[in-house]
Design a protein around this nucleic acid. Sequence first.
DNA 1: TTGTACGCGTTATCAG
DNA 2: CTGATAACGCGTACAA
Lengths: 342, 342
Amino acid sequence: MKANRPSAPTLRDIAEAVGVHTTTVSRALNPRTQNQVGADTVRRVRKAAKDLGYQPNPIALSLRTSRSRTVGLVIPDITNPLFPPIVRGIESALEAGGYSGWIVNTDNDPQRERKLIESLRSRQVEGLIVATARLEHPLLAELHAAGVPLVLVNRRVEGIDVPCVTADDAAGVSAAVAHLAGLGHTRIAHLAGPQTTSTGAARARAFRHAVRDLGLSDEPGLVVECAQWSEEAGASAARSLLDARTDVTAVVAGNDLIALGCYDVFGERGIDCPGDISVVGFNDMPFLDKLRPPLTTVHVPHHDVGVEAARMLLDGIEDPERPARSMLLPVSLVVRGSTAPR
Amino acid sequence: MKANRPSAPTLRDIAEAVGVHTTTVSRALNPRTQNQVGADTVRRVRKAAKDLGYQPNPIALSLRTSRSRTVGLVIPDITNPLFPPIVRGIESALEAGGYSGWIVNTDNDPQRERKLIESLRSRQVEGLIVATARLEHPLLAELHAAGVPLVLVNRRVEGIDVPCVTADDAAGVSAAVAHLAGLGHTRIAHLAGPQTTSTGAARARAFRHAVRDLGLSDEPGLVVECAQWSEEAGASAARSLLDARTDVTAVVAGNDLIALGCYDVFGERGIDCPGDISVVGFNDMPFLDKLRPPLTTVHVPHHDVGVEAARMLLDGIEDPERPARSMLLPVSLVVRGSTAPR
DNA sequence: TTGTACGCGTTATCAG
DNA sequence: CTGATAACGCGTACAA
């Protein structure tokens, strides 16, 4: 940033003011080394530092130490309402640890992702929190092999042992299916998220189990995969589902956006929700309670997901040998107006 | 980030490979200085750089040049759906200019804001895009006086001549009032945003003008200020409005969140919208079309706001002498289901 | 307990 | 056209 004013004071300025060597100042200011310095000197140095308004220069520090007290946050798109709460959670935990986060949006483009991660690494980020993982993800495997501290949020990756923080997808889907079954539904469909994502695969698997466990119809035609975790993809999957099957009375959507896609299709076709068909979402993003009808969904504690992910990463940075733990956060079904008795 | 592998190649590595001095490598790689170097040398250097996978080290570069190709994005809270699209707009324009943005959330806490901005500055950000401005804002005045390139989004600050990008609030409010008047409403209220923000003040002023111009009731009691730009503050303002006046048939909300607060109160009190009262929002945040009822609102081109703000900042960084221009982006009324004839 | 010397990777400024 | 040198701000062996 431009400095019309005298530029920020450095260790040297303090040293001159106090009449000692810069090294002494450095030591006096660093909590870890201040015991190597006379108590009185420490006092004088600290006073001078405060008087001059000294702020350590993180750039010089990074260059010298190859650390940055900074981590990269790799997300698909901050515009997706799912991510801001996670990001806030991450940042509050990072802040508590003296770190800060650098956000990048990949738009789910692997090339872009690679470029952005390279740029983050060149900025010396000490670790990465990644929300874009796919089941197959060579880049992440590379990074993990290279020893880059990594935490996954909302996703798992096959074949590598990376810590991750996710919602308890299986429990959420079970609760949703049980809720619908309790309402008398027997032919429940699942609009699954992309099966290339661990979340999409896990929820679909949980759906099949839940349906079977309850003795409901488990014909393959009742599960339709969406190409994206988006409203549009949800709508087109909903269309093909409804074109193929007229007997469906309830839908478990892979997430809230997909559920919104259903709403669109219901609007197009004059289907009454929940009168004709019930829908359950997943994630509980903001303002769902004000939809028409208010969406029944599975609440995920996004802020907590972020907090835990950041803590885990910080732990991993502190002790690179620490074995990868994974964390499953509890979810809860929020019953609103989009589900009704059959 | 930890480097188990051989650490990234530097200018020196290239120099050794090619058999020239690091200075020469630096010059050959820098587009601005490569004409000071023999064409053949340039060729060999570039090839070696590519072969070794050279990536310039931004940290060293920053330390040396006091620049960072980085700007700070100061927003209240990324969790507010208003900001993600702006942020994306900003980042796409920054990226096009070879810059990137560092996001901080102030939570509208001035102390926190100061701390965060200090930290951004110590990271050598070359400028700031600020979305947290209040009408009185000593910190911004300081920064501006210190010559820090600054652009305001969605806000103006009194007394200092800083470039800013805002929506055409007056036009938006006028359109909203005219729409309601056309529907036959004559006692229209305004739930104003905080009058300490320029946006809140501008919209309230525009409301008074619009109402007067159309010959509608302009009693002061029809304008109620909300303490925050939030759903809760909107709800409590709506309550006091409805407690005081039973004759109101339409409300122009300061923004969409305030409008959502109205929805909450309508729910509490069994008021039918739009049957009993019409509501217009402002901003057109996502998913408003799926509310019950779909919210009529003023659409603001948030992505464009971000893009223009970033361009303006980049211009200001390039040429600090450039006079502050301000930009008013056109808005449009989106009529949905929350407004109906009287 | 304090100071000296050096290096992190880069660019600006001279000298050749 | 190219090379040598210093400097950005800081931390750390090593010496005193």
